[in-house]
Amino acid sequence: MGACSVLGQFFPSKPTWSVDEIPDLTGQVMLVTGGNAGIGRETVKVLLEHNAKVYIAGRNESKCIEAIKDIEVQTGKRAEFLQLDLSDLASVKKAAEEFMRRETRLNVLFNNAGVMWPPMDMMTAQKFDLQFGTNTLGPFYFTKLVLPLLTATAASTGTKVRIVNTASLTGELHPQADGVNYDTLFDGPARRKKDKGYLYGQSKLGNILVSNELARRYTDEGIISIALNPGNLRTELARHEKNPVKMGVIALLRYPVQLGALTQLWAGTMKEAEELNGGYLIPWARIGEMPPAAADLAAGKALWTWLEEQVERFEAGN
């Protein structure tokens, strides 16, 4: 990833596309993980304004319901709530089963939710590194469970369905030589030698690798999978960081959530995005260069295999 490309993502040019260009989404069902806050919330708002049926999938029911009410005041339209805690595979399975009981189609899945820089002693319910478990393993499992509904929707409607995977510039900048360091995904000496930023970047690289594998494995079943960097944004994502100097620097580089939502909204709604299966987008709704570490076919296959093994172990009760 060249320096010019990186700088261009820190300081993007003005967008050339606006949400006013989104077509009418009547009849489409969409699900946004983490849709109660940040760019997820903005994404839900815009989708509702264009007549989609939208689910907010989140861990904190009270915050999600509050967001649903606020968005309804703004739009006159009400999103649905789905209980989903991506850091607990049991919750992920329950959420997917509940969603498929309630719906007969899913046109777009926005894998938007994530955590950044939590304390090192925080782990998932199944004792994975919290960032990788929440940002990579949890979304992988949820996506895997709803894939039958996605492929059935594509078959019954004769149109492409989409999986939009929100990554980060940190995924692009993660050391290519390291790839996914599997020894750091559980607690232990290898993980403790790394810092929170390294573990976050690794989880975001994981998002892109999974997105690419989805594109390779399911294109013949009508699925479009796109990964993206939404940009550096004014959200609550960095709430765990307590260093005032670091937060001051971050604040200088952050942009409004309305801009941040543009890229995933374009990926999830525009006809042109159907030509970008396995592609990578950068701020604001521009086609980007696939990071070299994420373009590694062997790395993508290895991560997919590892993720399936963790899911199988969980389902077997081990």
Rank of each mutant, 00 (worst) to 15 (best):
R216P: 03
D24P: 01
D20A: 13
I163R: 02
L303Y: 07
G248V: 05
L281K: 05
N229G: 01
K63W: 08
T151P: 02
V115L: 11
G35A: 03
R105S: 14
L137S: 06
A177W: 00
T104L: 00
C4Q: 13
R191F: 07
P256Q: 05
C4F: 12
N36L: 00
T136G: 08
R254V: 14
F10A: 09
Y141K: 05
S18L: 00
R239T: 03
G300Q: 10
S91A: 13
E42T: 07
Y182C: 09
R234N: 12
I287A: 04
G40W: 02
F314N: 05
G158K: 03
S87R: 13
M122P: 01
L147M: 13
V6C: 01
R254H: 10
V257I: 11
L86G: 04
I65V: 14
Y55P: 02
M122C: 08
Y255H: 12
P118E: 09
A293N: 07
K196M: 11
I71G: 13
A57T: 08
R216L: 09
L137R: 01
L7W: 06
A267V: 10
P12F: 08
G34H: 01
D296W: 08
V73D: 15
K14A: 14
K194I: 08
P244T: 03
G231D: 02
L86M: 12
G197C: 00
A37N: 14
N135K: 05
T170S: 15
L89D: 14
D296H: 10
F10R: 02
E309Q: 15
K127W: 06
P283I: 06
P189H: 10
T166K: 00
V146Y: 04
A79K: 14
F81H: 11
M116D: 02
F99H: 03
P175K: 00
G2D: 07
A285Y: 09
D70A: 15
Q74D: 15
N212S: 13
E98C: 12
G279F: 04
M270I: 02
W304A: 05
N36E: 07
S5T: 10
T151F: 01
L150Q: 04
V115M: 08
G133V: 06
